[in-house]
Design a protein around this nucleic acid. Structure first.
Lengths: 114, 114
DNA sequence: CTGATACTGTAGCATTTGCTTAAGTGTTGA
DNA sequence: TCAACACTTAAGCAAATGCTACAGTATCAG
């Protein structure tokens, strides 16, 4: 069976759809943190956090490096920027659509009330 | 077992993580469309498209109404705006973090090379 | 009236996801 | 040296996801 190779955007949106993973990203927006620091506020085992971390790294949202026994995680902006870009592009189209509606209404109003 | 009530952001990100659903949103950014119009370019049955549509509607990304036998779908901007807002807020934090790094580097450089 | 159109709804099924538990490995401080 | 620490890895499992197939229900055009 042929299986679909997920695109970067798929992985980024998927990663951000989980509240725990978003909490981790929110924490990392304030600065780098160790795995245990990321895990502390979350209601799950360290094991689960490590698995979430893997999802975030594979989505390109987070990067990490190990020094001694501590893995320090930080934000990787690339994927976040891609998500931002996709939204911005959509916005461009829907605002254009809105302008067209506005123009149409203006035109209709002008005809009905010259 | 207690089960988690998904928040709007969870649903929106989750909905946008599927390439087919994103394609539907992209199409709707150009203007309203019927279910069949949305289905035409997608490599799946109409049934599957309807199920994706339901996900998009429950996420608040799309709304639809039926007239006669045709259901016309259009964008619902609310959820999209929330996603945009979450990203914008994160950006605010990580740019602040970057500024701090910049300031630190500038300070270090000043000390080392007065 | 009749056939085509445009969905609608449900059952079933293979995968994926989000955990937990349990058993490691490599570091470090006393 | 050795116990505590900071992960790491894998097995297992319940629930969610992403389909398909199939059997409907309205609506419209001729």
């Amino acid at each position: 069976m042929l299986q679909y190779q997920p695109k970067p955007l798929d992985l980024a949106f998927q990663a951000l759809s989980d509240p725990g993973r978003r909490a981790m990203v929110e924490r990392l927006c304030l600065g780098p943190a160790s795995v245990s620091e990321l895990a502390k506020p979350l209601p799950m085992t360290l094991s689960a956090v490590v698995q979430h971390l893997k999802v975030l790294e594979e989505a390109g949202l987070v990067k990490s490096q190990k020094l001694g026994r501590v893995r320090t995680c930080s934000l990787e902006l690339k994927a976040m920027t891609e998500v931002e870009g996709w939204i911005a592009e959509r916005k461009r189209f829907w605002e254009q659509q809105y302008d067209q509606l506005e123009a149409y209404l203006a035109q209709t109003a002008a005809k009905e009330d010259p």
